[in-house]
Structure formats: C-alpha cells, structure tokens
Design a protein around this nucleic acid. Structure first.
Lengths: 344, 344
DNA sequence: ATGATGAATGTAAACGCTTACAAAAATATT
DNA sequence: AATATTTTTGTAAGCGTTTACATTCATCAT
C-alpha cells in the first residue's frame, strides 16, 4: 500500500541496498547519496520501522516500568526518561505495575515487554522480592536492564540510584540536633526504596544507642494516591491515638504518605511542627505547596530519569558493557514542618 | 537466534500455517490445536510481534501524546489509558510534546508515531492550530485517532471530551450567585481546552450583559509545573498590583495556574477568599491539599482516559467506524477558596 | 460404496527492510 | 599501461510471521 524502499531505489536509479546504506549512514559515495536523498524527499518515504526491527532485532524502543503515575515522584522520572529517549530516536513503552506492587505483576509486565522485543527495559523502584530467584539478574543477562532506585543488592544489573541511606542519615541527624529522640518511621509495604531507608534507620538507631520502639515503625500498603490520602488520615489518627508514648518526630518514606500523615496528625489534634515534626521524602511539588511546607529529601527525579535513559541506550548500542552503578547524593531540604522538640 | 514458529510446527507435526491459526484463533480442529498448544508450552514459544506487525500492519500498540506529565491532570489520564490498554493486550507508547505546546512539535510527534506503525493514536488536549490545514482530520483518515479534550470543532476525528463550556457556566453562575461581577480569567496560551472555556466565558458575559474588561483576561505561556509555580507568583503579583480596578473573583483554566495565582495573590496581600475568590479547574489532588482548599471543576481524568482507550481499540479493530463524540459532564466542587463578594 | 460438499491443513508468497557476498568501479602502485 | 588494492554498488537471501490458494480429509446424501 505505502511506498517502499524499492520505489525509492528505482527513482534514484540505485539498488535497495544503497538506499538502505544511505539511511543507515553506511559508506556511500557523496553523489549517490544525494540522489537517494532527493528521491526520498520526492517520494516522501520513511523507512518502516517494524521491518527494520525484524531484521536487526532492534525496534528502537525501551520499556519503562513504574508502579504508578499518580505519585509525582514517578511521573517526573517517567517524563525525563521519555524526553531523553526521544531525543536520541528511541521510543518509550510505558507500563505500570499498579500501586499494589505485587512482584508477580511486575514480572509479568517485564516479561510482556521482553516478548514484545523492546531493546531494553528501565524499571523504577523494582521490588526486592523480584530478585529472589535471580529474576532481574537473569533478565539483565539477556536484555539491557537498568533499575532506578531498586535494591542495591541487585546483582549484575545496571543501577541508577540515589544514596538513600545517606539521605536517611541526614534526616535523622538533623532531627537529632533538634532534640528529637522518638522518631516514627512510616513506610510503604513492598518498596525497594523503603527497605533501604529502613535499614539505614535501624542502623542509625543502633549507632546512637537508641532502642528502637517497634510501635514507631508503621507499614502501609499501596502507594496509590487517592487511597493513601484518604486511608492514611484514618489510620494515622487511630495509630497515634492508641500510642501511649507519642513520638516527637515522624519520617515518611514518600511524600504522599507524609501528606496523609500530616492530615492524620491534624485530625488527631497535633500541631505540626509544634507537637510533632514531620519529614517527607522526594521533594515533590506537594512538599512546598502544603502548609506547613514539608522538610524533605530532594530526589532529583529528572536527573535519575535522564541518567537511566542514557545508560540504557549505551547498553543497547553496546557501549560500556559491564554493569555500572550510578549514584546520586540526596540533599536535605529544610522547610517549616520541623522544629526543635517541644520543651527545649 | 530464538525459537521460531517453524520449530513449534515441527514439534507439533503440523505446518507453520496451522500454528499461526491456533494463536490467532482461526478455525482449527480441536485435536491439532491441543498438539500445537502442547508444543508451544514445551518450547516456551511466543510469537515475535515485530514479524506479526510487519505482516498485518498491526503491532498492537497505540501512541499516547500529552503535553507534559508534570501536571497531574495529564498523568492521571495517561495512567488510565495505559491501564485500559494493557488490559486488552495493547501497549502504549508515550510521547510528550513539551510544555511549550508548539503545534509543530505536536505534529512531529504524531508523525513519528505514525511512521513507527502504531495502530492508533490518542492525543490529549490537541491544540486547535493543528487542524488549521486539516492535519488531524487528514490523519484520522489514515489511522484511528482519538482526541481527548481537544477542540470540539475537530472534524472527522473521534472525540472524548468533557463539556467544558457547561462547566464554565456552572462556575460563573455560582460566582455570580455569590455577588461576583468582575471575574478574571487566567488561561494558558496554546491550549485547546482554554479556548473552549474562554468562548464560554465571553458568551456568558455577553448574556449577562456584563461588559468584559480585557484587562481581566490574562494569558500565560506554558504549563510546565516548575515554571508555572515560580513564574506565576511573580506575574500575578505584578498584574494585580498594576490593575486599578481589582476583580473580586478569579478563574484559572488549570490547577497549576490556580496554585500559582493563589501564591501571587497572597504575596500581593490579598486574602483568599476574603478579598478575592479563586476557582481552579480539573480537581487534581492539589486542589484539596492546598489551603484554602480550592473550589474547582471535576474532570474525571480516569474516565476520560478509559473511554479514549476503549474507543481507540474499537476503531482499530474495526468496530463503530464513523467518528464518535463521547461527552462527559463536569461537576462543580465547592471548597473554601470561594466566598460571597466582600461587603454583601 | 460413490460422489458432492465443506472443513481442516499445507505450500509458498508476501510484508519491507538489512546485510553477507560478489561484482564493478575507482584509485593506487609499479 | 597494466596490475593490485580499495571503495562503491548490486544481488539475493534472510528476519519470523500471516494468508491466499491449493490440497487433503472428513462428512453426508444418494
């Protein structure tokens, strides 16, 4: 139906191979190249990428896997990935695994993508469980794979990540300097990032000789925005009401949870930061919009996305073949949701 | 390199055509079907979709075009499109045109997608300019195309849209009932939705016999979140400071702009809603998080996305061939950013 | 049983490119 | 000028499916 390479070849008076060479920048004499380009222009021909992909095994597409787009943390990463990708002629295929973050679903999604013949896959916040049987590691063997902010223990896969442990320490040191000793920790249930943070939190407690109160660690399921905001208000309220020895500060592993916590605390009659200091994570737009503006940890989402895109392209095109680990350092952003502990 | 349909055929003792028929649900005797399925299972074969796509011209992919993902309005639409698509075995290729919304860029993106052999394209908020030469209409002729909340005048293309004019009237009637007469209108520069709203705004003014003050209509460029929030604070501040006759209410075409306006007004010393009532649009999560919580217009992003996805699949698979127009009615959500005009 | 009918299967030609290999043309070497 | 070398170009065989057409098989009426 459409116009094919053959037509262009005929028009230019050369063979299809030559046309192919021109569009792939293989050596061709300048004069013939011009003829071909002229023919292409005249016939308005563009190569069919499915056909090309079938040949080369490269469709110039990369799969992008995120839990959800309702958290700005993810949507900003996706946006920057997409921008970097199209900038170099690749296309991003987006799939979300759903806020429940089941690792079964994540694997299914990744496998669908692989079957579709994408050239590589970027997974954001890959759950740790998924590597239990070496799933990610095995996948990385047969397809370029980069994981953003996944578990640092992922072996043999390209990692782009923020040093969240150090961010955690910055938060805790800062709160400590304000006099806080009972610091609650809110996390999502199955979240690679939260695991890292929690490890750092526990290590920090130990180091400071503070006995961690298990009642201060709370796990919530899911990261879906609408659910979080509604449900957390309730559960935070009931959690803190039941707690006999209250915390003086509270850290939430992501901003949505911090927002939910803020509401729950307000509902329970606590003033932030008067009664309780609150620290979020990611520095999404929410953090600066809300009142009090949240103290939080900057995540530089767009840099993460850009780095991941560049890395996957490098791998796809055969540059820098062995797994690499790109690390960003998070900064603490101090706003108005934190204050010296009451009575100091 | 991998395993091919031929291998499966050999294993099952049939021809490749029969295997193909099995996986495409074409008539095949039950017994042979079983043999083939067994062989598929044994060899773990999955059809190569590029090869299939080359044949059928269908890659089971649809392009999704949005200006940006930093506005939750878009990211929620994208999320719901993606979910609906993968639910029926399709994949979404995401491309953003950038917050500057140049129509050249939009065309380029759409054309890239078309060349890539996507089966259909969903464009969110397609700029009106793009149909000047009948671009969208022509495209719709050769490829299924659905536009979400684009210009209603788009001819021959499938439209999924919110009746934004009626939403606008609801806002204005409500403000009128609170005594407001000088109502400012903030819009983004090149935004199909904003055109619709502005038309409704002007018509409403006329109908009420209110002379519109051109100074009350303000256009801002771009919808990029970071820019909006920073720049608008400034420009709103200077705009309202310079205005000799202040408005008593202000409507912003999208929530990001409303947020920027809120900050600008506060900076200029205006109390919302005490001095000025503020109405946003879209009912993104921001609207309920901010203080005062914004009165706004519900857009049901996920329904829009779902409807668009269903529609494009129908078109791709040849159901309901002539252009359709699916309309949603927006609701006014009254929160705390609006109040009776001062002195009433 | 026999031929007519219709359903299931097989054969082979697309689909639109890339690329190994061969041939031809241009350039360098003597 | 003749030959060796290098660079360009052409020929044709894939890449892994689908599908029109031809063939075979099963079923049914006679």
């Amino acid at each position: 139906m459409g116009i094919r390479i053959e037509d262009v070849a005929r028009e230019a008076g050369v063979s299809t191979a030559t046309v192919s060479r021109v569009i792939n920048n293989h050596p061709v004499r300048e004069k013939t190249k011009e003829k071909v380009i002229a023919a292409m222009g005249k016939l308005k021909w563009e190569p069919n990428l499915l056909a090309r992909g079938l040949n080369t095994g490269r469709g110039k597409t990369v799969g992008v896997v995120v839990p959800s787009l309702t958290n700005p943390y993810f949507s900003e990463i996706v946006e920057s990935i997409e921008t970097s990708l199209t900038g170099v002629g690749y296309l991003g295929i987006l799939m979300s695994t759903g806020a429940d973050r089941s690792d079964a679903r994540e694997r299914e999604v990744v496998e669908t993508l692989a079957r579709r013949g994408v050239d590589g896959i970027i997974v954001v916040d890959g759950t740790d469980e998924n590597n239990h049987n070496g799933f990610f590691s095995a996948l990385a063997g047969r397809l370029p794979l980069v994981v953003i902010n996944g578990s640092p223990s992922l072996d043999g896969v390209d990692l782009v990540m923020t040093d969240q442990a150090s961010g955690m320490v910055k938060v805790l040191d800062y709160l400590y300097s304000l006099g806080h000793r009972r610091i609650a920790f809110f996390r999502a249930d199955r979240e690679a990032s939260a695991d890292v943070k929690m490890d750092a939190y526990l290590a920090w407690l130990e180091e400071r000789g503070l006995t961690g109160d298990p009642g201060l660690i709370v796990r919530f399921a899911g990261v879906n925005r609408s659910r979080i905001l509604v449900e957390m208000e309730e559960s935070v309220y009931s959690w803190i009401s039941r707690l006999e020895e209250k915390p003086s500060a509270l850290f939430a592993c992501n901003e949505l949870m911090a927002l939910g916590a803020l509401r729950g605390l307000e509902k329970a009659g606590f003033d932030v930061p008067g009664d309780i200091s609150l620290v979020g994570h990611d520095n999404t737009p929410y953090a600066s919009l809300v009142k009090p503006a949240l103290t939080t940890v900057e995540m530089k989402m767009s840099e993460l996305g850009g780095a991941a895109a560049r890395r996957i392209i490098d791998r796809i095109e055969g540059r820098g073949t062995d797994p690499q680990r790109i690390l960003f350092s998070p900064e603490l952003i101090i706003r108005n949701s934190t204050a010296p502990v009451a009575g100091i």
